[in-house]
């Protein structure tokens, strides 16, 4: 089905250097690349920044585990060369909880989407935050269910057009960062897929911390949401994110609501607390009480 074009090999002489592999390939299931994501989709940047963060921290890749749910970004687990689990829709967090509690030496990260984590998985994520469970959750927020063709999600702004809100969305979105901050997360940040340097730094920061860590990453969905909401191409959306994302570290999460996809919005690290994690509390209580 896929069309193949004749390659102008002279081009290769004119341009740069041709390579067969990428430095990230060591942490990538490169036999599965190219991935399924659309041209310009922001999911790829989440993977590339995650890999860079793991590399720079020199974490043993054998001890990294990725869990994802269902959706476009749900496929992330299938592209990262760590122990990776692609679970059912919405259930990545409880699966990751089992993995982490049973084997605490693992660095367990959940990489999933706004629909997966906050609609069908909404109950799981608030409870993981409440427990201050020792997992990192990276949420690719593209305002929509991309994999099923662009329906509205709990992150879709009001009035937006999707395939199931053809006249405009009547529902208000969650403020994801505020929801998790109030549920008890130790670390809450928001970046976009164009802020790759800061996103990578944030992932690094989060990987060195304990407890429930949450990074929301706004990603363009040019094929689904963007197309129906005058957001243009992925380049247009990315430029918009670059121009309108205002860094506001430590902002009150109540003020970082994403009301309108076409106005200024706050990015940055909003919450960064040192508080006892689930595993620390478990250790403290059981070492005190259980000595019979």
């Amino acid at each position: 089905m896929s069309m193949e074009f004749d390659v102008d090999y002279e081009y290769q002489d004119r341009c740069m250097y041709m390579a067969e592999s990428h430095p990230s390939d060591e942490m990538l299931r490169d036999d599965r690349i190219p991935h399924i994501w659309c041209t310009g989709c922001g999911c790829g940047e989440i993977i590339s920044t995650y890999i860079e963060a793991v590399k720079e921290l020199d974490i043993n890749p054998d001890k990294v585990a990725i869990v994802s749910g269902i959706g476009c970004i749900g496929r992330a687990a299938g592209y990262l060369k760590f122990d990776s689990f692609h679970t059912t829709h919405g259930r990545a967090i409880p699966f990751a909880t089992g993995l982490k509690v049973a084997r605490p030496e693992l660095d367990v990260s959940v990489i999933s989407g706004d629909g997966d984590l906050f609609a069908i998985g909404g109950n799981h994520i608030i409870h993981a935050a409440r427990r201050n469970m020792d997992i990192l959750v990276i949420c690719s927020n593209n305002y929509t269910y991309g994999m099923t063709g662009g329906q509205f999600s709990p992150a879709t702004p009001i009035d937006s057009f999707t395939t199931t809100t053809p006249y405009g969305n009547c529902e208000r979105p969650f403020n994801l960062c505020d929801l998790l901050a109030s549920a008890g997360a130790a670390y809450v940040a928001r970046w976009t897929s164009i802020h790759v340097r800061r996103l990578q730094k944030s992932i690094k920061e989060a990987l060195t911390k304990k407890g429930f860590r949450f990074i929301e990453v706004l990603t363009p969905c040019p094929t689904g949401f963007g197309r129906r909401n005058k957001m243009g191409t992925a380049i247009d959306t990315s430029k918009f994110y670059q121009d309108h994302g205002k860094i506001d570290h430590g902002a009150d999460t109540r003020d970082v609501r994403l009301e309108d996809p076409l106005s200024d919005f706050s990015i940055g690290t909003f919450v960064d607390l040192d508080k006892e994690t689930y595993l620390e509390a478990k250790e403290r209580i059981f070492s005190r009480e259980v000595k019979k």
Partner: peptide, 11 residues
């Protein structure tokens, strides 16, 4: 889900 995760952790 948690018990599936734990089983994959080898427990």
């Amino acid at each position: 889900c948690a018990i599936l995760g734990a089983s994959w952790a080898g427990v």
